[in-house]
Nucleic acid binder design. Structure first.
Lengths: 338, 338
DNA sequence: CTGAAAGCGCTTACAG
DNA sequence: CTGAAAGCGCTTACAG
C-alpha cells in the first residue's frame, strides 16, 4: 500500500508551508486566490484526500454520526436508516450503523464503540427494556443523542417516534365505524411500549364508540408471519364467532390471511383484517390489506434534522416529535351483514 | 460538554507515564499484572473510552469498514448489509453505510469520503454502468475493496455475487419441466448485468429443452410492482395465448398477480408465475409464489469474511465467490392441460 | 518493569 | 499574505 499523500507533500510541491496548504484547502481565507488555486491543483494531481480523523483530533469536530437499532434489515428500520443517512450525508455527515439485536450488553458495547470513534452524535432505537441508565455512557460524555421509535422516557434526549396510541385508535375506529364491535388484537409482545400504546388506542376507540374491548380478545405472539398464522389457527378455532382482527403488523396480517383462508372464511367478505406498517406488499394481497401507515422514512429524516440542529446549537431545548400515522383503507375490512 | 478523559488523566491518577497506561490498556505486556489491574480500574472509574481515531492516526490501523450500495432500504441490500455488519462487528469492526442512489457522482464522492475517514476496507455494490475507472480512487490509495452483487469485471478486487445465470436457468427450467414451452420474461432493465445473466440462463434452459426463447417475449420495465403490473396489462392483452411468465423479481410478480387476476385468469390454475428473491411475503400470496431464492445474507457474510481475510493478509490472492440460488417451488406454477 | 520523547496528519494561535 | 510551532490523544521505538 503506497504512502498516502498528505498536506506536507502538497506543501513541498508548492513550496509552501503546511499551514498555507491547510488554509488553502479549508478555504479559511488568509491565503491569496492564486495560492489556493495552485494548492488545489496539486492536491488533485497527487490524489490527496484529507484525513478527516486527523482533522477531528485537532478540531474536535467529527463528521461521523452513529445509528444503533435492533435490526437494520427490518424494513421499518431499513427505511428509517436510509432516509437518516441521506439527510445526514446531505449535511456532510457519514453514518455508522449497527445492529443491537435486542441485546442490552451488545447495545452498551456498541454505544462505547461509537464513542470511541468520536462520532458527533448518536441515533438510537433502544432495545426493549432499556432504562435511562443504558444511556449513561452517552450522558457522561456529553454526547448528543436522539432516541427514536422506542420511548424510554429519557428527559434529556430528543425523541422522534410515532404516535402508536393514535395508530391503534385509527385501526380500531375503522372497524367500529364499519359496524364491527367484536374483534381481536393479535400479535406483538406485551412488554413493549409500542404494543401497549396501540392497545391503549384500541381501548380508547372502543370506549368512544361505547363498547368495551375485553382482555380475552388480546393475543400476544412474536410479530412475525409464522407466529401470526399459528396464533390465528387457535383463535379461529376457539373464537369462531369473532370475524375481525387488528394485527400488530402487516406480517402478522399476512399470517392471518393464510390461516383464515384455510378455514374457509374469506378476508374482505366474511372476515375483516387491519394491519400496521403498510409494507409494499400489502397493496398486492388479495384482497388488498387495510393498514395503518407509519412513515418510518419521516422518522429517519426528522431525526436527522433534529440531530443536525442540536449539533449546531447544543443547548437548544429538548424536542419531542411524534409522526402521525394514517389509515390506508383498502378491501380487507367488510361491514357485517345486518 | 465535559472534557473527555484520556490516558494522561489515567497516568496522573495512577502516578504512571502515559506509555505505561497505554501498554496496560492494550495488554501488550511490558507492564506488571498489578499495574495493569490498577490502570484498568482507574480507567473504568473515570469513564475512559479510548479514542480510536487517535490510535488509528498513530498505528495506521483502522477498525472501520465502509459499505456503499445503491439503496440501503432495498430489502435485498438491507439483509446483505445487516449480515455484513454483524460479521464485521464480531471481528471488531464498525461499518459506515451509505446510499449511492444509482448516481456515479455520488458514488465517487462517497468513496472519497470513506477514504477520508481512513476506513480499513470498503464493500461496494457499484451503481449500474460503473467501469473499473470508478474504483480508481480506491486503487490509487491501495485500499482493499470488495465488489459485490454487481460485477464490473474488476480483475483486482475480490467479488461476491450471486449466480444470476443459474438463477435464470432454474426459473426457466422449472417452467419447462412443467411442460410450459411458451412464456415471457418480464421486468428488469436490459442494461444491467443481473438482467442479462438471468436472460442468458433462461435461454440456456430453453435450449437444453430443445426450444428457442424468442426475443419478442422479453419485456423490460422498472423492477417494481407498479411497473410490473402495467407491463402485464399490456402483455395479457397483446399475447393472450401466453400463460406463463418469469418475473424479474418478486415485486414484479406481485404486480403480475394483480394484472392477471383482473383479466379473469388465475395464477396457479390458468397462468404460471415465477419470481426471484423470495421476499417474506411471497409465501403468503394466494397462491404462494414459486420463486428463486438468492440469499443476500450469505453475500453479506461471505463478503465480510473475504474482506477480513484480506485485511489480515493483504497479498492474498483475489477471490471470486458466487452464491448459488435455489428454486422454491410453491403453487404459482401449473402444468397446462394436455 | 518503567519513563521521556517522537510522531501519525491535520488546524490554528502566534509572530512576522 | 505567509511560516514556524504547538498540540489533539494515542502508540511505540529507544533508553534506562
Amino acid at each position: 500500500m503506497r504512502k498516502r499523500p498528505n498536506i506536507k507533500d502538497i506543501a513541498k510541491a508548492a513550496g509552501l508551508s503546511t499551514a498555507a496548504v491547510s488554509y488553502a484547502l479549508t478555504g479559511k481565507g488568509r491565503v491569496s486566490a492564486q495560492t489556493q488555486e495552485i494548492v488545489k491543483r496539486i492536491a488533485d494531481e497527487i490524489g490527496f484526500i484529507r484525513d478527516d480523523t486527523a482533522a477531528r483530533l485537532r478540531t474536535g469536530q467529527s463528521n461521523l454520526l452513529a445509528a444503533i437499532v435492533h435490526d437494520t434489515s427490518n424494513p421499518f428500520f431499513a427505511e428509517l436508516l436510509s432516509d437518516f443517512e441521506t439527510s445526514a450525508y446531505e449535511a456532510g455527515y457519514l453514518t455508522i450503523v449497527a445492529n443491537a439485536k435486542n441485546d442490552p450488553i451488545r447495545q452498551a458495547a456498541l454505544i462505547d464503540a461509537m464513542l470511541a470513534q468520536g462520532v458527533a452524535g448518536l441515533l438510537i432505537s433502544p432495545v426493549n427494556g432499556t432504562e435511562e441508565a443504558g444511556m449513561q455512557s452517552l450522558r457522561f460524555h456529553g454526547k448528543p443523542y436522539l432516541v427514536c421509535v422506542r420511548d424510554i422516557g429519557d428527559k434529556q434526549a430528543d425523541y422522534v417516534g410515532l404516535n402508536d396510541r393514535q395508530a391503534g385508535y385509527l385501526a380500531a375506529d375503522h372497524l367500529l365505524s364499519a359496524g364491527i364491535r367484536h374483534f381481536a388484537f393479535v400479535g406483538g409482545l406485551d412488554h413493549t411500549k409500542t404494543w401497549l400504546d396501540r392497545l391503549d388506542g384500541i381501548r380508547a376507540a372502543a370506549s368512544d364508540s361505547g363498547v368495551t374491548f375485553p382482555d380475552e380478545m388480546i393475543f400476544n405472539s412474536a410479530p412475525t408471519r409464522e407466529a401470526g398464522s399459528q396464533m390465528f389457527d387457535r383463535i379461529l378455532n376457539s373464537h369462531s364467532d369473532c370475524n375481525a382482527a387488528i394485527c400488530f403488523n402487516d406480517y402478522v396480517a399476512l399470517g392471518a390471511y393464510a390461516a383464515i383462508h384455510a378455514t374457509g372464511k374469506v378476508v374482505g367478505q366474511t372476515y375483516s383484517v387491519v394491519g400496521f406498517d403498510n409494507v409494499p406488499q400489502s397493496a398486492s394481497l388479495l384482497p388488498p390489506l387495510t393498514t395503518v401507515e407509519l412513515f418510518p422514512r419521516d422518522i429517519g429524516r426528522k431525526s436527522a434534522g433534529l440531530m443536525l440542529g442540536r449539533l449546531k446549537n447544543p443547548k437548544r431545548q429538548r424536542e419531542r416529535l411524534l409522526i402521525e400515522p394514517r389509515l390506508i383503507a383498502r378491501e380487507s375490512v367488510v361491514r357485517p351483514r345486518a
